[in-house]
Simulated assay, not measured.
Amino acid sequence: MSNRWRPSVTVAAIIERDGRFLIIEEETSGGLRLNTPAGHLDPGESLPQACAREALEETAWHFKPTALVGVYMARFVKQADGEDITYLRFAFCGELGEQEPGRPLDEGIVRTLWMTLDELRASADRHRSPMVLRCIDDYLAGIRLPLDSVHTDPSVYNVS
């Protein structure tokens, strides 16, 4: 069973303030790309915990997920080496907390930006994936699933 297919589980934070969205600009193998604060689920954490952690690590802003916007799946084949990856993204919206000025951002993050929807649409060719705009569009359409629809069994937290 070593050839069993496993998608890469990621989380994303949809953070809006005054009609602008918190976006990161990051260095990737394909050059500078724009993305919502996002990253991989780590062992021992729930999806909402992963989302809050990734938002803080990538933006220096505290974020509290309050609803699931959607679950998204996309396939990406790296041009450099042909690696074939399927991402399973859980996107959350929520409450923006305090910023930690001076907090170092994750490696590869160049800066954070507050962008309008028009600016995001105009820069779609620079998005990390097509899921960036899709998640924001769903958020703006009012899609919200209650956070209690995302369950984490206690066994997840028993990581050695």
Rank of each mutant, 00 (worst) to 15 (best):
E16R: 12
G31K: 09
E95R: 04
L68G: 06
L133R: 05
S46H: 00
L34W: 02
V71A: 11
Y157M: 04
R103T: 06
L133H: 09
I109V: 15
A91M: 08
F76H: 14
M115E: 06
F21Q: 00
L47H: 13
R75N: 09
A55C: 15
R17W: 08
I14Y: 09
G108C: 03
H127T: 07
F21P: 00
T152M: 06
G70N: 01
E100A: 07
A91W: 11
M73K: 12
V150Y: 05
A91F: 12
V77Y: 00
G142I: 06
G142C: 03
F21H: 04
C93I: 05
K78W: 15
F63N: 06
D138L: 10
D148K: 04
D137V: 14
I109Y: 08
A124S: 14
M1K: 09
E83H: 13
A50Q: 10
R17S: 13
S2P: 08
I14T: 08
L22R: 01
C51Q: 01
L140Y: 01
M73N: 09
I24V: 15
S123H: 05
V71E: 15
R144N: 04
T86E: 13
D125T: 15
L145Y: 15
L105D: 01
A74D: 15
S2V: 12
F76A: 08
T28E: 04
A60I: 04
A12P: 03
L32H: 11
A50C: 11
I109T: 13
I24S: 00
C93F: 09
A50R: 08
L147H: 04
G31N: 08
R6L: 15
S8Y: 13
E26G: 14
A74P: 02
E45F: 06
M73S: 14
C51P: 02
Y72S: 08
F92Q: 00
Y87P: 03
G102S: 00
L145N: 14
T28G: 07
S46K: 03
G94D: 05
P48G: 01
E119F: 13
G142A: 05
C51E: 03
S123R: 15
I23G: 07
G30W: 09
A52G: 08
R6H: 14
S129L: 08
A50P: 06
P154N: 06
S155C: 07
K78S: 13
G94E: 02
K64A: 15
T59A: 03
E95M: 01
G108P: 12
S2W: 13
S46L: 05
M73R: 14
M131A: 14
I15H: 02
Y72Q: 01
S29M: 12
V110N: 10
D118T: 14
P130F: 10
T66S: 12
R4F: 14
L34E: 03
I109G: 00
S46P: 03
L117N: 02
R134V: 13
G30M: 09
L22W: 00
G94N: 12
T10S: 13
L68K: 07
A60P: 01
N158A: 14
S129I: 11
L147F: 03
P101A: 03
S129C: 09
G97V: 02
T28R: 02
S129T: 13
E26W: 07
E57A: 04
S123C: 08
V69Q: 02
L47R: 10
S123W: 00
P146E: 06
K64C: 12
A50D: 11
